[in-house]
Design a protein around this nucleic acid. Structure first.
Lengths: 106, 106
DNA sequence: CGGTTAGTTAGTCATGTAACTAACTATAGA
DNA sequence: TCTATAGTTAGTTACATGACTAACTAACCG
């Protein structure tokens, strides 16, 4: 998960992922969409691939990249675990904060 | 969101956030939990703070840091948008893939 | 085969950033 | 006011990583 975050933090890779969310794409399609050269895209795709975020299938000379579900699902769950911060039962959360403060004050 | 990702990608900051998810904490409590010095923790907290992920309140000489909800909520929503990758209606998703392939073949 | 299209790999360079030490600031208490 | 506690800021160094160019590999086609 740590690895997934690190991989997504790079802006070009973030953009590649956004692109692939809409549909699988070939390397040259990705190159056209971003503002960097083909070797750079290739390298970022390798990093994404090694982190398990994308997968490639061959289509003649083309390589069609698409997203893998798992790591995104993992992060989705992780961020869900923060919902305590905003969810309905704010009152309860505040109780818990107060409780913490009480503990501090000892 | 980009910024939030970048900020969270650093392992120590990730750990700090995990800690603060459980409860607000003072700097020294965080220092004890991690394996780096106080200046480093202080610096990471500043970065987290500038990215809007945490907030501090003063308590005598201590600074008590806690999480801000908003950026986590934003990322939670963003990752939700990937649920097309794994959710129930896989069949529909496959249709959509096939549709894409058809487009390719033209 | 020879060429063309599609993509990857290697090597160099520059930049950003994390860790460390040392010095500084602020609050509390005797 | 002097000292101790709690944290921040500054300056240096080292390392990781992204961009670029050039060279390489693979698949298809005439």
């Amino acid at each position: 998960m740590q690895l997934t975050l690190l991989t997504l933090a790079e802006p070009n890779r973030f953009n590649i992922v956004e692109l692939l969310k809409k549909a699988p794409r070939s390397v040259s399609e990705i190159v056209q969409a971003l503002n960097i050269g083909q070797p750079q895209v290739s390298r970022h795709l390798r990093i994404l691939s090694e982190a398990g975020l994308v997968r490639a299938r061959n289509k003649a000379q083309q390589r069609i990249y698409s997203l893998e579900a798992q790591p995104f699902q993992d992060l989705d769950e992780w961020f869900d675990s923060f919902s305590i911060l905003w969810e309905e039962r704010l009152d309860n959360f505040e109780d818990y904060m107060l409780d913490y403060k009480r503990k501090e004050d000892v």
